[in-house]
Amino acid sequence: MAEAAKPGVKVRFYRLRNRLKDKTAGLGSGMDGGIEIDTAALEAAQKIFEEMAEDYPDWVSNQIAQLYELHRRCVDTPEQRRGLFEQITAMAHDLKGQGGTFGYPLVTTFATSLNRFSTLRNDIRDSHVEIIKAHIDAMRAVIRDRIKGDGGAIGAALTRGLEQVISKYRD
């Protein structure tokens, strides 16, 4: 922004015409008041969303295969673990944001934990690499068995299993 033309001006308020509203107001424009979204359009969009959600498990399976590959490289090339962990952190972040959206909150739960755990950058030991694998295993189980929602008893068992692996291998 250009510096103040008038001396002593500390704050400028720009009160601009609402161009977005001008463009989007349909019938009855010119009236005051809020704009509402078309319920029918919203329902149609929701339908598209659900159709895409059906493809979600395939897409995640692909991501999980890539995570297994990163894990394998952590095992085979310990000197590259730092960079590999960075890639795992980024993939986990992506998965974390999507699971809940498509009805698989457990993917979000495990991806959140993986995202946090994989931020480790120094002194990455074999035990830490095992913890990474336990997270991937847990997500794979959720997708393989199509465990939606909190997964009830199976979901609780998976969560407990992962926690046990973490406490066993930690440090």
């Binding site: 979204i37 919203l42 809940g100």
Partner: peptide, 19 residues
């Protein structure tokens, strides 16, 4: 995230209405 289509619609409207 995670978001729903309803949230997306609501946020769009919020951007348009709240000038």
């Amino acid at each position: 995230k995670p978001f729903t289509i309803r949230t997306l619609g609501e946020k769009l409207i919020a951007v348009i209405n709240r000038n």
